[in-house]
Every structure is written in structure tokens, then in C-alpha cells.
């Protein structure tokens, strides 16, 4: 996360904005996954809890698919 702060605040790096966004979102996702796996014990717990934890992401993907399908209709 601190790396993300440095990247976004450091003009010398001259990364495109989309590149910084991608790096920071990737770092956030990795950190969230580490918290879930180790602090929330998903790694050692029963698989059912991992399914419960991942289920909303499937629903979100479905919802986003419906939302962004309108782009295809516009084209």
C-alpha cells in the first residue's frame, strides 16, 4: 500500500495513470487476500467458508455483466 502511495505521488516515475491504478488495485487485492487467508483463517478452515466468502464475488460478476452488457447493445 505504501508502494502505491509512493507510485501515485512520485512524478519522476512517469507511469501512465492507468498503470498506477492497475498496480495499486493489484496490491490492494493481494493485501485483502492475505488478510482473508491468514488473519481470517480461510487457508486452514473448511472449504465451505471459502465458498461462502467467494459467493458474493460470483454474484457481483453476474451483476457487472448485466450492467456492462448495455455497452454491447449500444455498439
Amino acid at each position: 500500500m505504501l508502494l502505491g502511495v509512493v507510485l501515485s505521488e512520485w512524478p519522476l516515475l512517469r507511469l501512465p495513470h492507468a498503470g498506477i491504478v492497475a498496480i495499486v488495485v493489484a496490491l490492494s487485492s493481494i493485501k485483502a487476500a492475505l488478510v482473508a487467508l491468514f488473519y481470517m483463517h480461510l487457508k486452514g478452515d473448511r472449504r465451505l467458508l471459502a465458498f461462502v466468502a467467494l459467493a458474493p464475488f460470483g454474484l457481483i460478476a453476474l451483476a457487472l455483466g448485466v450492467v456492462f452488457s448495455s455497452y454491447l447493445i449500444r455498439l
Binding site: 500500500m1 502505491g4 501515485s8 495499486v24 488495485v25 490492494s28 493485501k31 485483502a32
Partner: peptide, 15 residues
């Protein structure tokens, strides 16, 4: 609650 902030922080403060 920590995980939510992990995503809110870059989205609101960095972009």
C-alpha cells in the same frame, strides 16, 4: 472492516 478500507483508501485518496 480492514479489508473494506484497503479498497476505499486507494479509490478515494490516490486516484
Amino acid at each position: 472492516v480492514d479489508i473494506v478500507w484497503i479498497f476505499l483508501f486507494p479509490m478515494l485518496y490516490l486516484f
